[in-house]
């Protein structure tokens, strides 16, 4: 049996809102030690989502035996809208389930809402992603990165990320002209999440689809910082930390033909 209780429904709501425009169907893998993990690739095979909700994400978590919950995220999203952000949210599944029970409890009123979501058999390819050495790692406020991704999408289909030891530069070239934003590393002692940290082994210059970056920055609601790991001619990793665990996006770059 699975029983996972979130202190606030808003955490799962934000996570599902961050991924459901990229993937519609995915398997939630549940286990006692790892909590709930998800790996899913978007239909265009450009973006991969790796989610890890450790048991620490939950106020209470038990999973007596490993199980896989095949979920339609659009349907799950409809049910999650029924609860309030502050509610307790509990996911309950029996062994070999054909449905997932979702329970909202209002903390102040004696109100309990229960929903049952039908599960699906989902065939999905799982990719092995080894921890590799990256050429660069940037940690910056997620709001800043989100603004760049949203603003530059109106100018160009692509966004270039150029990292040197001294700076990270975001650059877009489109029909109407071009633009760039440069950030230099700095440490904000009063507000550490406002700091910008650049670790560089080798400079990189990579280009990504603006559409996918716009999907990725939907997760900015989950964490005030984002870590971007870049390696020449390889997929980039965009990571948002959860209270315990992470939401990662792996995005294939664009190359010149």
């Amino acid at each position: 049996m699975l029983e996972g209780k979130f202190d606030q429904a808003s955490l799962l709501k934000k996570i599902i809102d961050s991924i459901r425009d990229s993937v519609k169907l995915c398997n939630f893998n549940c286990s006692q030690n790892d909590g709930i993990t998800v790996q899913a690739i978007d239909d265009s095979r450009v973006l991969l989502i790796a989610l890890k909700m450790d048991p620490g994400c939950f106020q209470e978590f038990r999973c007596d035996r490993d199980m896989v919950l095949g979920l339609d995220l659009e349907s799950l999203g409809k049910i999650l809208k029924q609860g309030n952000n502050e509610d307790y949210l509990t996911l309950i599944a029996e062994d070999n389930p054909d449905s997932l029970l979702i329970v909202f409890e209002d903390k102040k009123k004696d109100r309990i809402s229960e929903f049952s979501l039908k599960l699906m058999d989902i065939d999905s390819d799982v990719l092995t992603i080894d921890d590799m050495d990256n050429d660069c790692s940037i940690t910056m406020p997620s709001a800043d990165f989100s603004k760049i991704a949203r603003d530059f999408k109106t100018m160009s289909e692509s966004l270039q990320i150029i990292v040197t030891k001294e700076s990270v530069k975001f650059k877009a070239e489109g029909q109407i002209g071009s633009g760039s934003v440069i950030f230099k590393p700095h440490t904000d002692l009063d507000n550490p999440d406002e700091s910008i940290k650049i670790d560089m082994n080798q400079p990189v210059n990579l280009t990504f689809g603006a559409k996918y970056l716009n999907d990725i920055v939907k997760a900015s609601t989950l964490s005030s910082t984002i870590t971007i790991k870049l390696t020449d001619k390889a997929p980039a990793l965009f990571e948002f930390k959860l209270p315990s665990g992470y939401l990662r996006y792996y995005l294939a770059p664009k190359f010149e033909d």
Binding site: R45, L47, I129, S158, P235, L251, A252, P253, E256
Partner: peptide, 14 residues
């Protein structure tokens, strides 16, 4: 114009 790569080509199926 740069060409979009397929992510799956970078990794192996588990």
């Amino acid at each position: 114009t740069p060409i979009q790569n397929d992510l799956v080509e970078f990794y192996t199926m588990a």
